[in-house]
Design a protein around this nucleic acid. Structure first.
Ligand SMILES: [Mn+2]
Ligand SMILES: [Mn+2]
Ligand SMILES: [Mn+2]
Ligand SMILES: [Mn+2]
Lengths: 221, 221
DNA sequence: AAATAAATTTAGGCAAATCTAAATTTATTT
DNA sequence: AAATAAATTTAGATTTGCCTAAATTTATTT
């Protein structure tokens, strides 16, 4: 497998994340995501197309080819394994891991990553609950729904949190909500979309709409 | 402290290593070390001088300033801590660690490195026996001499090995010589400069001149 | 002290990755 | 179907890092 520059890798990863939501990704969307300018995006899209990582027709948006997706999953694997390492071994807090992993992900030595994976005990998810692709690029897409969609009186497990900021972490720690926590929705209020939930069968607590929107649970369990 | 590019860091580190031997470093020397061309060196020397990391007068060679030395020690700290991590935790062999550390050393997040140091138990030397600078850039220069200089019938400890190749590692493992091994020189032969040494008080074995030249022991102990 | 050789720098160029501003294409309104 | 607006691409610069070939400086010989 070929090697890509840090810049190419950042573009590829961003496209992967955007197309999961969108299908086809547009120039302006990607420029916003990468805090860059549309002209720079067009330049790089030509380069990635030439390398057959991208399907791209001028003015028509783009998406990754099968090869491009494979590259993206490699980058995401490295990113999430390092995040796990930082949280688990170096005791970084949840909100600190992303920034450092953003650099470490670009050290692409296959043996390094596979041995790191083994050393960490082949973790399935990163500290934010996002799945870690395996050495073959296979990623476990577990069915998740937002806690706002969960029927009342159903016990479920927190699977991931989509916001990764220190502010949401502070709130979640205060409310004793973490990945793996058992939750049960007791009541939803139409007025402000706040809800009462039980954490590990303790007395019910209230969470705001803004918080609830970021909490995802395993569908069915 | 400012941040430097991967390229700048590689130049700074190379100058640091060369000037330990030489005092003043020359353009051609550095070009050879970095497998690059003299013209490229001159370009970068101007840049590093402008950043006050280097004392440099055209045609007169160069050496690091106090600031430049501090930067170099930071890079060497990262490099050797990662080498230690790879050998100790990921079970890389001695000859494999350098190449990977060459990339990891450029991820320069202070907290990452200080936490890694702590996680590893503040190791003093890397897998090759070279000292690891502490968080303040202090490096322990232990007095070492080549085993060829060691008087006969003096027991000493292997402190470092200057060649880092898989070939020398194979030979050293076969002869059961590692960092920390107790050695005693029994006999030196003038014909081929080979010598007989005892390892951990076992029966004497023979080592060649080429091998002996790469083995350094603590002076006095 | 010239002449020659060696080391170093300068001049000029190229590729990657970015940007601003202008031109072009596509989408949306009248 | 024009006209207008929005999105996108192209043109032309800039910076970093590297190169080759030519010019210059320093070192070494006769
Ligand atoms: Mn990144
Ligand atoms: Mn994550
Ligand atoms: Mn390096
Ligand atoms: Mn080393």
């Amino acid at each position: 497998m070929l090697n890509y520059t840090t810049s190419e890798e950042n573009y590829i990863k961003a496209i992967y994340h955007l197309q999961k939501v969108d299908g086809m990704v547009t120039t302006n969307e990607l420029a916003a995501e990468l805090q860059s300018k549309p002209a720079s995006i067009t330049d790089m899209m030509k380069k990635l197309k030439a390398k057959k990582l991208l399907n791209y027709q001028p003015y028509q948006g783009f998406r990754l080819t099968a090869d491009g997706t494979k590259v993206a999953l490699g980058i995401i694997r490295r990113h999430r394994l390092w995040e796990f390492f930082l949280a688990e071994k170096l005791k970084f807090t949840w909100d600190e891991v992303h920034e450092v992993a953003e650099d470490l992900e670009h050290v692409s030595n296959k043996k390094l990553i596979d041995k790191l994976d083994e050393y960490l005990g082949f973790p399935r998810v990163d500290p934010h609950g996002d799945p870690i692709p395996d050495a073959n690029g296979k990623i476990e897409i577990s069915k998740k729904i937002c806690i706002t969609e969960l029927p009342v009186n159903t016990i479920s497990t927190v699977a991931s949190v989509s916001d990764h900021s220190s502010e949401i972490l502070e709130l979640l720690e205060h409310k004793k909500i973490a990945i793996g926590t058992k939750v049960e929705v007791k009541k939803k209020f139409e007025f402000d979309n706040s809800m009462e939930i039980k954490i590990n069968r303790q007395p019910a607590i209230t969470i705001s709409e803004q918080l609830a929107k970021n909490i995802f649970v395993n569908y069915g369990s």
